[in-house]
């Protein structure tokens, strides 16, 4: 059930090329494809979002309820039970906010990419029977997780403003850039994983392990200056930790809401720590991962129908 809008539909093995670089350089086509197939794309995204809550009485409200409870738990556990102490002394809620803001963005990346990884394989019926731009498949779970992230951000901002840990400044205006970087990065990783998963299903198990290591490698519930103080003798360890695609975007997500990010100025490092620096680093990571992911996905796409 496919209608090709091209007047001539042809393929010749003698002239067809499926090179990685050829597609990698055509990355802007992904955006024009999304625009051209926007009806299909919205249907995919809508289906993805609705199918998560289909049949549940709470429906879409779970998207809101879940982060509220998540924050409430952090608030209770780290603010009262463990009485996490800040440098100033007394029990505080700032750690709950710090933790919540990190987990929010990291979970968004993880959930988006993990779902995207399965997107082609789980739509095997479509991929086999219908000719359609299947590079749109990994995008919809990413869009959905980014939407959930939006709701989480509202909860985070509300909570932070109430406790007084978040101080709004002009930096908040850079927030859409953080969102965009996370979106493009997840799409790139999602495309890469989705295509790899078609050829070797092992990647799904492997990625689960990698994701755990990645979570602990990213400064989510430990502050970066803790490591910076430990490794002053060997600054390369810090540099390696900073070469983490999730690092700049996580940092930037905190900096735009005014969470302090202290690091001893003595620590030698490659990546600048300012919001601008983090945004540039995040944008570079996002672009590289997207171009690689797109190139790989498109160069393997012609084999999908035979393998899913």
């Amino acid at each position: 059930m496919t209608v090709s809008h091209d007047f001539v539909h042809s393929y010749d093995t003698a002239t067809a090329k499926h090179g990685f670089w050829q597609y990698a350089f055509q990355w802007p086509r992904y955006f024009s494809q999304v625009v051209r197939s926007r009806a299909l794309f919205w249907n995919f995204a809508r289906r993805e979002l609705l199918s998560r809550f289909r049949g549940s009485a709470g429906g879409i409200f779970w998207v809101l309820i879940q982060p509220i409870f998540q924050f409430a738990i952090y608030f209770f556990v780290f603010g009262f039970l463990f009485e996490h102490r800040t440098q100033t002394g007394g029990p505080s809620t700032d750690f709950a906010i710090y933790l919540f803001s990190g987990i929010l963005i990291f979970n968004t990346l993880m959930e988006g990419t993990t779902q995207a990884m399965q997107s082609v394989v789980s739509s095997s019926n479509l991929v086999k029977k219908v000719a359609f731009p299947c590079e749109l498949l990994p995008l919809s779970p990413v869009i959905v997780s980014q939407t959930v992230y939006l709701v989480g951000c509202v909860v985070l901002l509300t909570a932070g403003l109430i406790t007084g840990d978040i101080v709004l400044s002009a930096k908040i205006l850079a927030w859409p850039l953080v969102f965009l970087c996370a979106l493009v990065m997840s799409t790139g990783i999602g495309l890469l994983l989705a295509a790899t998963n078609v050829f070797a299903r092992d990647i799904a198990h492997l990625y689960r392990i990698v994701a755990q290591a990645w979570f602990f490698m990213t400064p989510i519930f430990w502050p970066l200056d803790l490591v910076a103080q430990k490794v002053t003798g060997a600054p390369w360890i810090l540099n390696i930790m900073l070469l983490n695609p999730a690092y700049p975007v996580t940092m930037a997500a905190r900096q735009v809401i005014g969470l302090p990010e202290s690091i001893p100025p003595s620590a030698a490092r490659l990546v600048p720590m300012t919001l601008t620096g983090n945004l540039i680093a995040a944008a570079i990571w996002a672009s590289v991962l997207f171009v690689v992911g797109y190139g790989f996905f498109m160069s393997r796409k012609h084999k999908f129908a035979d393998l899913v």
């Binding site: 496919t2 001539v8 539909h9 393929y11 093995t13 002239t15 219908v130 000719a131 129908a305």
Partner: peptide
Amino acid sequence: GTTFPTGGGFR
């Protein structure tokens, strides 16, 4: 157009 040939072509 769901699967691709390994030889020859079509239009």
